[in-house]
């Protein structure tokens, strides 16, 4: 069996790195949390890894806008490496602040263009929201998700969100249509029975209830909810999971590790 190596990128203000590490390890990944300064020193080190994760937090305090400073730093200092990693088809995940970083550097929704064409803006409620939400898994490829991270999930899954800037807005209608057409919308906020969600079920007012997107290929994945906070049933408010021990968030990490294997 192949040893699956995971790089968790961290910097000042990263704060979901430990639980993201624990989630990958639970699925058999070998994880290193690496400070961006160390990666900039040895840029090609990135290619020693099979999976790249940018975890949640408040990188550089989210000064200017969430994820903005780190996105500039990654793009300016590691941009070509990260783009190459993405285009090679290796799994990449950006969770919450990591998603904000990816969107602002343009790694999502299209790493080929690699320009910012969408944003994650302030929640409609104008406040930070920490709560559980229901997500509808889009399954349009033979009844399965287009994204390698989200296979084998039920139609509706719940995960926690915790953010102040999570309202996904694409630049224009054309992009929105393309995201829909190319099956790049991975999760949408929904109600318990799959209906249209009002606040707080849509916690931020995202366009078309978008909670997660991927590139066309489905290997680069960005989401506002926190799957790493739901790897055990115990973490669920009503202690539900896909079996008596594990939560649905674990499946997301398992998918990537299994994909590499």
């Amino acid at each position: 069996m192949k040893k699956v190596k995971v790089l968790i990128l961290r910097t000042a203000g990263t704060n979901c790195d430990y639980e993201t590490q624990a989630a990958f390890e639970l699925c058999g990944g070998f994880v290193e949390r690496i400070h961006i300064n160390a990666l900039i020193e040895k840029k090609d080190k990135i290619f020693e890894y099979d999976i790249l994760a940018c975890p949640g937090g408040f990188s550089y305090g989210d000064d200017i806008a969430s994820g903005k400073i780190l996105s500039n730093e990654v793009k300016n200092k590691l941009g070509d490496k990260v783009k190459k990693f993405a285009l090679s088809g290796k799994p990449i995940i950006g969770i919450c602040n990591g998603f904000q970083v990816f969107v602002k550097m343009g790694l999502l929704p299209d790493p080929n263009i690699f320009e910012q064409i969408s944003t994650l803006s302030y929640n409609d409620s104008d406040k930070f929201e920490c709560r559980w939400v229901y997500l509808k898994t889009e399954k349009r490829i033979n009844g399965e998700s287009n994204c390698i991270w989200t296979k084998k999930l039920p139609d509706i899954v719940s995960l926690p969100v915790a953010h102040g800037e999570g309202k996904f807005i694409p630049n224009d209608k054309k992009l929105l249509d393309a995201l829909n057409k190319n099956n790049q919308i991975v999760f949408r906020y929904t109600s318990k029975d799959g209906g249209k969600p009002e606040y707080p079920l849509n916690p931020n007012g995202s366009v078309e209830q978008i909670a997660a997107v991927s590139n066309i290929k489905g290997n680069v994945f960005g989401l506002m909810p926190h799957p790493e906070r739901y790897v055990f049933t115990l973490q669920h408010p009503a202690r539900e999971g896909f079996d008596s021990e594990y939560g649905w968030g674990k499946v997301i990490f398992q998918n990537a590790v299994d994909f590499v294997k």
């Binding site: 704060n15 979901c16 430990y18 639980e19 624990a22 989630a23 949640g56 406040k127 930070f128 929201e129 920490c130 709560r131 926690p160 915790a162 926190h226 790493e228 906070r229 739901y230 790897v231 055990f232 115990l234 973490q235």
Partner: peptide, 12 residues
């Protein structure tokens, strides 16, 4: 809800 009471994933 304004406090991230679930960061670190350990609030059971």
């Amino acid at each position: 809800r304004q406090y991230d009471h679930e960061v670190q994933g350990q609030t059971v």
